[in-house]
Every structure is written in structure tokens, then in C-alpha cells.
Design a protein around this nucleic acid. Structure first.
Length: 781
DNA sequence: ATGTCGCTCGTTTTT
DNA sequence: CGAGCGACAT
């Protein structure tokens, strides 16, 4: 059977899978069969009795990856899934902390704050301590706290630089205390607590070091410092008295695109050094993309420095060239893409095999508009996730509070939802009482007096009621009861737009049922298989840790739209990478720092390597962004692709004006082969050319021709103020109309007695008014 | 307590 | 341009 397992592997893959009991790094290029290797490795360990399932600890980056791993393993062999620890860092840390909550200093039912809960908690702290949001935005503090935790630093470990950081640190300190009092954790806290638990608790450390003989890490380039330290401690790194565990790290430094949220590519080099690994295994044979696509990816990424080094190759042919298309604007870019998609469809291609990728979410709009109007089905990944929906969070907040009355985040969320007459004033009193007496908001309610106390009692009665039923009712019934008893049901029934929310709440019950089934619960007492945790506790933490997938609806045939970040790990026959313009991709904010530019380049590398067969790169000379039209120069990444692999589909050789040649001397259409690049596309479709380019009227051309930013906006305002006429009605003038209310002038037509103003009213829509007539009904504000 | 107005800001994001 | 939020009015 072992030979069976290895039959389909290439020599490098086989080497990785069959490694003995040692630590190793597998540099797995895009499309090199990384997931298969990881799964085969586990199967190999088990089939050769190198360890039991209970001795495996496998970390992935997303829940999706963890699930896929389990599914594929189970398809291969019968498994005790519960014994094997497979999951995300956060999921596994949560599991460990629940098991040892006492040792970790947490209540059994500790809450997990998601990002918005965390932000809310910080805002609450700021208010209580008179820290103005204007001086120190809550988001900044949140960022700061999370960064520190990712580095493994508690407030007490930090020596602040200057006043600014001292203030940040002060909030961090209070935040730590508040979380302890609330019996709550956050995402960073799950990891940090686990790390500290193992570090400070010798028996536990010994136990887990002895237990997890094989530690496997997927997407190792995405780990942060704290996570790496956790892996080291779990693996018994640095111990002289016994052999350390085997860490099997799989990753690709060229696909590290999450530095902005703490991922530290440096971990890969540190890992080689720390574990004295001299020969990382390179998986360089690519089974996904055609030659030209791979050539382009290799050529582009070779511009990055400090790579561990790797060159993808394929046995497949060169395939189609990568096509580059320049559009006049974002609408035409979309039109070109949809045209091409229609061609694919005519040739029988599956819509699911077509992906449109972009750097930032805002870019999907123009694409969606075009796809809709031309009747092409599409799915956008990365919208609002299930557990992020307000109605779901509300229902869960009731349950959270029932489970842990100290959970102030949950309290704040639902104390007046649905509205029951508990306003800002009451909440403020409660916050004061809670702060004074160092108790939770829920406990503080007992200190209220008079009519307010009675109003609040309605709420606390609900919570107590749900709380009293949380062990006796099965989870699904408990959720239904909560939705009823809380008044959420009635609230959404009364709301004419509440239908969908009610359906989502129904769905919450179904998802709980599915969850129980998946976890193997038969009834509430049936906890032995689940580390003795109750279903509600498990369900609530999974709700936060798996905010819900953004997958396309199963079976639905649709073009796939997503950011490049979201596309990591996926593959498609046909890929469009859009918005290849300097400022957009690479993004403005990443162009000055070489480090950030390199991350942008890796992002481009990820995007390119998503494609199996056909790859289209598009950009628009003009793009409407933030309601402002701006001219763009094509992305410098386009200059980093090998001529042999690309084909320019440029409709015209010299239509750039100020654009390309002026700003980018390395650019030349002819050298990129415009002539042979003219495909039949342009013979049939000059219509795009004839479409008038919509220029933004109010901006001087000099300002349009360069990236149009805030500083320039001010100058434009100045110039405009010099040329406006003196009757006071100009573009931008705010006015009020007797009948139509408030509005802003967005256009001027005619002059003198014929002068008309186009006014966009705040509620009455846009109207064109003849000034001579309308004047008496108008007043300038 | 709730709704409306107007200002600001605008990469990527999983857990 | 448009989401989100805080200030202000009803």
C-alpha cells in the first residue's frame, strides 16, 4: 500500500513525503502539488506506523484548507478525526485553551472577540478614559495592540517611544485588564495565551511536546513571529535532553502576500537556520500552467531580491501567449473582458473556469455592471460573510451573554436591540457603574434604581431565561428559543425588509444542526468526543473562528470575481488580471518602499500563476476612482514580462498623448509587437474606439494627466475659484430650493439670461433649472 | 430614541 | 462615487 501512495509522486515530492523523523522545509512553488504532498506525508506517517493519529499536529492557514485536508485524508483511510489535531492556528489554540482554561487563566466559556467586537471594546475603553478619537483613532490602537500581540509582546514588555506610543500602550494595558475581567480573548490573544501557557507550565509543555511528534505547517510563509515561536516551543526546539519533534514546513516565499498583517517571510530563513536545515526540498515542477504563463511568472519574480530561489518548469507546451489589452477606461476594459468571455462560452468553456482578478474590491463595480447588462452570470467572492451579518451577530450576542454574562461586547450589542427604551444615557450609567465597581455591565444592572432599573430588568430577564435553558434545550432549539425570546423575530417580522434576515436566522439554526452532526454530537450530554465541551461553547467559538465561507453557491455556473489575495490557492483555465496600472497595481502606497513593492510583485506572481491555459492582462488609460477621473500609466509589472511570452493587443500605436511615452520612456509599442498583436478582435470591433471618452469636466487637463491626488485638488479649487463668475451660482455651490430642498450645483449650461444650473438635490434627484426663473426660489447656503 | 444630514475617506484580510 | 459614522435635530 505504501508503494501505492508514492506511485503518483515525482522524485522531489516523494523525497518530501518519505522523509525520516527530521525537520524539513519544503519550498513548494505554485501548482507544484503542495497539498497532495502534505496529505501524502500524513498518510505515509500513519501507514508506516511512524506515529499514531494522536501524535500529529497539522496547521493550515484557513479553515477551508483544514477541511480539505481532513476530507482528502479520510477518503484515503479510516481515521479517528478527533484524535488528530488538524486546523488553523486559531482553531487549534482555541481547542488547547478550552481544554486547559484553568491553567491558562480563562473561564471555560471564554468569549472570542472578532475584529469588530475588538474595535468596540477599544472604543468603550477610550470613552471611559476620556481619550479622544480625534487624537488617537480607535483603529490605530487596534492595529497597535494586534501588532504587539503578533510579536508576542504584552503591555508590560514594551518600552514606549515618545508620547504617542505611551498613549497607545496605556490603552493596551487597560484593554488587557478589561479582557480578563470580561473573560474574553481576541484572535491574537488565542495564540499568545497558548504560547505563554506552554512556556510557563512545564507539565503541560512536557505533555504536548511528548505527544505531537509530527508537526506539519502549511503556508509557512504566512506565519507571524508569535506563531513561529509557538511552533518552536511545541516542537521542543532547543532541548538538549531529548530529540526535538519533526517540523514539516511547507511554503513558498514567492507567494508571501500577507506581510501587511504580520506575516513574516523571514520565518522561512529563520527556520532553516534554527533547525539547521541545509537542503530544503524544492518542488519546482508545475502541473498547472502552460509554458508561457510560467515563463512570465518566473521572469517577473526574478526581479525580487532575497528569495530562497526556485524556478518553476513544466512538461506542458508553451500554450497561448499572454494577451495584454489596453482600454480607454474601466468600462471599456470591462466590455473587452465580457466580449472575450462570450467567446469562451461560445467555445463551450465552463464559466467556473473563468476568473477576473483585481487588486482592490472597488474595481469589481464596473465589471459587475458590464457582466449584468450582458447577461453573464458571475459570483463575487469576499462580500459580507454569514456570521458577520447583523442579525446573526445579534442572535449570537444573546447566546454569548447567556453563556458568559461578563461578555460586555455582547451586552453592548444587544442591550437595546430590539429597541426597548434603553438609550445612551442608561448605557453610560452602566459603563460608569461597571468601571467604578470593576464589574461587568450585566452585573452593573443590579445597581440601577427606579424606572430605568425596570426597563433594564426586561433585558436581564431575557438573558437569565436563555441562560437557564442553555443546558436543558438542545442547541438548535436553544437558538430558536433565543431568536423568539429576544424579540429579534418580532423585530424583523415588523421590518418590511426583514424577510431575508429572518431567513438568515433560520439558516443559523440549520448551520447549528450541521455543526452538531459534523462534531458527532447526538445530544447535549454527548461531550466525551469533544474534549468535554458543551455544544454551545463549541458552536460560539466556531462562529467567530469560521466566519463563514464566501464560496460560490454550489453547482452554480458563474464567472468568478475576486481580489488577487482571495485567489491564492485557486486555479482556473482562464484568468483576467485587471487594472494593471501604476498606482492601482502596484498600489500607490506600496511604490515607495522597496519591500512593499516586492510584496506587490509577489501578488502579481500569485495572480499570474492562477492561470492554467489563458491569461489576459488588462489596463485602462483612464479610470474613475473615488468619484474622480484619473489618467494612469500602465503597470511597471507589464515591463517585467518576457517578450516571448506576451502579445500586445493594442488597438492603436500612438494614442497616448501625454500618457505612456511621456511618463515611461522604457515603453514602446512597436518593440512589443503591436503589428502582429492586432488580432481579429479589432477588425470586428472598432466600436470601442468610437466610444467617446468621458472626461471629467471640472478638472483642468493638466491635473487629469497626472495622478489626481488631494494636494492637487486644492490647487484646482483655487484655479476654479478664479474663473467662476460672480452671480454666485457655480459648480459646487450648495443651495436650497423652496420645493426641492438642499442641493449642490453639479453643472452649468448656457450663460446670461439663458444660464441653467444642473442641481443634484439631496432627496429630490437631479434637476436642470433655468436660473432666471428659479432664482427667486433658490438661496445659496 | 430615532432618524437625517453631511463629512471623511478610500489596499489587500483570515483568524 | 458611496459606505460608514458622528453630530445634530425631532
Amino acid at each position: 500500500m505504501a508503494s501505492d501512495l508514492l506511485a503518483n509522486l515525482n522524485p522531489q515530492q516523494r523525497k518530501a513525503v518519505t522523509l525520516p523523523d527530521v525537520s524539513s522545509l519544503v519550498l513548494a512553488g505554485a501548482g507544484s502539488g503542495k497539498t497532495s504532498v502534505l496529505i501524502s506525508r500524513i498518510a505515509y506517517l500513519l501507514e508506516n506506523n511512524m506515529c499514531s493519529p494522536g501524535e500529529i499536529f497539522a496547521v493550515t492557514f484557513t479553515n477551508k484548507a483544514a477541511k480539505e485536508m481532513m476530507t482528502r485524508l479520510q477518503a484515503r483511510m479510516p481515521l479517528n478525526t478527533r484524535a488528530m489535531w488538524v486546523g488553523t492556528f486559531h482553531g487549534l489554540c482555541n481547542r488547547l485553551l478550552r481544554l486547559h482554561h484553568e491553567a491558562a487563566g480563562l473561564p471555560a466559556a471564554f468569549a472570542i472577540l472578532d475584529m469588530s467586537d475588538q474595535l468596540g471594546a477599544i472604543k468603550r475603553i477610550m470613552k471611559a478614559n476620556n481619550i479622544s478619537e480625534e487624537v488617537l483613532p480607535a483603529r490605530k490602537i487596534q492595529n497597535y495592540i494586534n501588532k504587539q500581540k503578533e510579536e508576542g509582546l504584552r503591555a508590560k514588555d514594551i518600552k514606549p517611544y515618545g508620547f504617542g506610543e505611551r498613549e497607545l500602550l496605556r490603552v493596551y494595558e487597560i484593554y488587557e485588564k478589561v479582557l480578563v475581567r470580561e473573560g474574553a480573548t481576541d484572535f491574537g490573544e488565542l495564540i499568545l495565551r497558548t504560547y505563554e501557557l506552554l512556556k510557563n507550565n512545564e507539565p503541560l509543555r512536557e505533555h504536548y511536546q511528548a505527544r505531537f511528534k509530527y508537526i506539519l505547517i502549511d503556508e509557512f510563509q504566512d506565519t507571524n513571529k508569535l506563531q513561529y515561536n509557538l511552533l518552536k516551543i511545541l516542537g521542543g526546539y532547543g532541548r538538549q535532553d531529548r530529540k526535538p519533534n519533526a517540523l514539516f514546513a511547507v511554503g513558498d516565499d514567492d507567494q508571501s502576500i500577507y506581510a501587511f498583517r504580520g506575516a513574516n517571510v523571514g520565518n522561512m530563513k529563520d527556520f532553516l537556520r534554527d533547525f539547521m536545515i541545509t537542503d530544503p526540498i524544492r518542488l519546482e515542477q508545475n502541473y498547472r500552467s502552460q509554458g508561457n504563463i510560467l515563463d512570465a511568472a518566473n521572469y517577473l519574480i526574478s526581479n525580487n531580491r532575497e528569495r530562497l530561489g526556485k524556478n518553476l518548469w513544466t512538461e506542458a507546451g508553451k500554450g497561448d501567449p499572454i494577451r495584454i489589452y489596453k482600454a480607454d477606461n474601466e468600462n471599456e476594459e470591462a466590455a473587452y473582458i465580457v466580449d472575450t468571455i462570450k467567446d469562451f462560452v461560445r467555445n463551450g468553456e465552463d464559466l467556473r473556469q473563468i476568473a477576473i482578478l483585481y487588486r482592490s474590491n472597488a474595481q469589481s463595480r464596473a465589471l459587475e455592471t458590464e457582466l449584468t447588462s450582458r447577461g453573464v452570470k458571475y459570483v463575487v467572492y469576499g462580500g459580507l460573510r454569514f456570521y458577520d451579518r447583523a442579525e446573526i451577530k445579534n442572535a449570537l450576542a444573546y447566546l454569548r451573554l447567556a453563556e458568559n454574562i461578563a461578555d460586555d461586547s455582547a451586552f453592548m450589542r444587544v442591550v437595546n436591540t430590539p429597541a426597548r427604551g434603553i438609550g445612551a444615557k442608561t448605557v453610560e450609567t452602566l459603563l460608569d457603574l461597571a468601571k467604578e465597581n470593576k464589574i461587568s455591565l450585566f452585573e452593573a444592572t443590579s445597581l440601577l434604581k427606579g424606572a430605568t432599573a425596570n426597563k433594564v430588568r426586561v433585558f436581564t430577564d431575557i438573558i437569565n431565561d436563555i441562560r437557564s435553558k442553555r443546558f436543558s434545550l438542545p442547541l438548535t432549539a436553544l437558538i430558536n428559543y433565543t431568536v423568539q425570546r429576544s424579540g429579534l423575530q418580532q423585530m424583523y417580522e415588523a421590518d418590511e425588509n426583514g424577510q431575508e434576515r429572518l431567513e438568515n436566522l433560520q439558516e443559523l439554526t440549520s448551520s447549528a444542526a450541521a455543526f452538531l452532526d459534523q462534531e458527532g454530537f447526538k445530544n447535549n450530554e454527548d461531550c466525551e468526543n469533544n474534549d468535554n465541551l458543551g455544544p454551545l461553547t463549541l458552536f460560539l467559538s466556531q462562529a467567530t473562528l469560521e466566519a463563514g465561507d464566501n464560496q460560490a453557491k454550489a453547482g452554480e455556473e458563474a464567472v468568478q470575481l475576486m481580489t488577487i489575495h482571495a485567489s491564492k490557492g485557486l486555479e482556473f483555465n482562464n484568468v483576467f488580471i485587471t487594472g494593471l496600472e501604476n498606482g492601482l497595481f502596484p498600489h500607490d502606497k506600496c511604490m515607495s518602499e522597496p519591500k512593499e513593492l516586492q510584496e506587490e510583485r509577489r501578488l502579481m506572481y500569485v495572480a499570474i500563476t492562477r492561470a492554467r491555459k489563458k491569461l489576459y492582462l488588462t489596463y485602462a488609460a483612464q479610470r474613475l476612482l473615488h468619484g474622480m477621473s484619473r489618467y494612469n500609466v500602465k503597470s511597471s509589472f507589464l515591463d517585467e514580462l518576457p517578450n516571448t511570452a506576451i502579445k500586445w493587443l493594442s488597438p492603436k500605436e500612438d494614442d497616448d498623448g501625454l500618457g505612456q511615452n511621456y511618463f515611461n520612456n522604457s515603453y514602446s509599442y512597436s518593440s512589443k509587437g503591436y503589428k502582429d498583436g492586432r488580432e481579429d478582435y479589432f477588425q470586428n470591433r472598432d466600436s470601442y474606439r468610437s466610444k467617446p471618452v468621458q472626461k471629467s469636466e471640472n478638472i483642468p487637463s493638466w491635473a487629469q494627466s497626472i495622478g489626481f491626488r488631494k494636494e492637487e485638488k486644492k490647487q484646482v479649487e483655487k484655479i476654479r475659484s478664479q474663473v467662476k463668475d460672480n452671480d454666485g451660482f457655480n459648480i459646487g455651490t450648495k443651495l436650497s430650493h423652496e420645493r426641492f430642498g438642499m442641493g449642490t450645483i453639479i453643472g452649468i449650461e448656457g450663460q446670461g439670461a439663458d444660464k441653467k444650473v444642473v442641481v443634484k438635490f439631496n432627496s429630490a434627484g437631479t434637476k436642470t433649472l433655468l436660473l432666471a426663473i428659479a432664482k427667486k426660489k433658490l438661496s445659496i447656503i
